[in-house]
Design a protein around this nucleic acid. Structure first.
Length: 370
RNA sequence: GGAGGGGUUCCCGAGUGGCUAAAGGGAGCAGACUGUAAAUCUGCCGCGUUUCGCUUCGGUGGUUCGAAUCCACCUCCCUCCA
């Protein structure tokens, strides 16, 4: 039995949605699950206790960032990431593949790996499949990710093919370099917006027999319909008995569709970033609570929400905090947005278990505006 | 009473003859944000029928083809001397 495995409890007969439990060395959590992002070994503004209380069973952290600062050796010396950041539940570390994409001109991709220019001090750094794997072993997350290239959109067929094939070769190198048995290494399907490449990537990774599979390279600027299309063209080639993780997706509409296409795990900076910028998420859409229309709106962010912010504060107060640049405002909205998404996932899971997911999905999408 | 300095678009504050509806900052308003270089970034910010027109720089009058910018008087504020 691999260190991380999923137990499927119920599948939706009409869609690909599934409800389950994912087991890790640091506890189990229900799926589908949304994983809050804590890039630098902290989910910005929130404490582990607060995350636990809202039901986050696993959070994300980042290889590239921790590699640069404070350095994986230091985290290892601290006793590993769990201990270092005082989080005793699941952790997944991203490999740095996304930084290959987001650092743009500050990096150079070669077969060996990727040469980065540190965004902190400009120092030249090398990340290869082997290094990314070793760094992640030192960090000690429960789930670690293969080092991939998250290619830009659009990418023509020839670029996409080269990139995808290289990502597949890198995945094999990550697997060969990975030795810890108490953590699971997930492969990442790429392929750009080309279905045949998605299929090829998925099949080749499945042949390598990873304990879980991620779908990468989506939500990078393409239209949503295209993203759903690519996701569908990917999940259908993944084994049912293993966890599936859609990387970087996090708006409610995308989450329902992702779940409908058989995804078990998601992560996204969206809820926390947008929170710090004054926007809150609700079942019916977004609310830019920093805007003037809420100046004397003494209602709670979202009626019926059980989060700390909604139980105690008004839109007008939170708007005031934002206008006054008080950090408590960032915290309240981060708390709300994450609670909201986590609750949303619980509701979806319950709907799958109750056999009413298709109706749930339809109702939600009808009442939600982008 | 005397000497000097100053009054600029919501605020602070540049600008001393045309390139000025007027720098810059703040405030305000709006938008963006999807494996976090993000408590960030972008746009708007006199009025309108908005690639053009109109009205603004304490007030009035004047010089000039042309004035926020030069001159006169008035007015208000600040500093210093009696």
């Amino acid at each position: 039995m691999p260190a991380v495995n999923i137990e499927i409890i119920k599948e939706c007969p009409e869609t690909g949605a599934r409800a389950g439990v994912l087991h890790t060395p640091h506890g189990s959590f229900p799926t589908p699950m949304f994983m809050p992002v804590g890039t630098q070994a902290t989910v910005k503004t929130l404490s582990p206790e607060e995350l636990k209380e809202m039901g986050a069973g696993i959070i994300l952290s980042n290889t590239y960032h921790l590699f640069l600062r404070p350095g994986h050796e230091l985290v290892e010396k601290a006793g590993g990431l769990h201990k270092f950041m005082n989080w005793d539940q699941g952790i997944l570390t991203d490999s740095g593949g996304f930084q290959v994409f987001s650092l743009g001109a500050m990096r150079k991709i070669r077969e060996e790996g990727v040469e980065f220019r540190s965004h902190i001090d400009g120092a030249k750094k090398l990340l290869t499949p082997e290094i990314a794997t070793k760094v992640q072993e030192a960090l000690g997350a429960d789930i670690i990710m293969a080092f991939d290239e998250c290619m830009p959109y659009p990418a023509d067929l020839s670029y996409a093919k080269n990139s995808t094939d290289r990502t597949t070769r890198w995945a094999a190198r990550c697997k060969a370099a990975h030795s810890r048995t108490d953590q699971a290494l997930f492969g990442i399907v790429q392929g750009g917006m080309h279905k045949e490449l998605r299929q090829k990537s998925a099949e080749e990774l499945v042949d390598m027999d990873f304990p879980g599979y991620a779908v990468g390279g989506l939500s990078v600027g393409e239209p949503k319909e295209m993203m759903y299309d690519m996701l569908a063209a990917t999940t259908c080639h993944l084994p049912k008995e293993k966890p599936r993780y859609l990387m970087g997706v996090g708006t409610p509409d995308c989450l329902v569709e992702g779940v409908a296409l058989g995804v078990d795990m998601f992560d996204c900076v969206f809820p926390t970033r947008v929170a710090r910028n004054g926007t809150c998420m609700t079942r019916t859409g977004r609310l830019v609570v920093r805007n003037a229309e809420f100046a004397d709106d003494f209602r709670t962010i979202e009626e019926g929400c059980g989060c700390y912010a909604c139980k105690n504060y008004s839109r007008a107060y939170i708007r005031h905090l934002f206008k006054a640049e008080e950090i408590f405002g960032l915290r309240l909205l981060s708390l709300h947005n994450l609670y909201f998404l986590l609750q949303f996932m619980r509701d979806m899971r319950q709907a799958i278990i109750d056999g009413v997911f298709p109706q749930f999905r339809k109702n939600f999408l009808e009442g939600y505006s982008l």
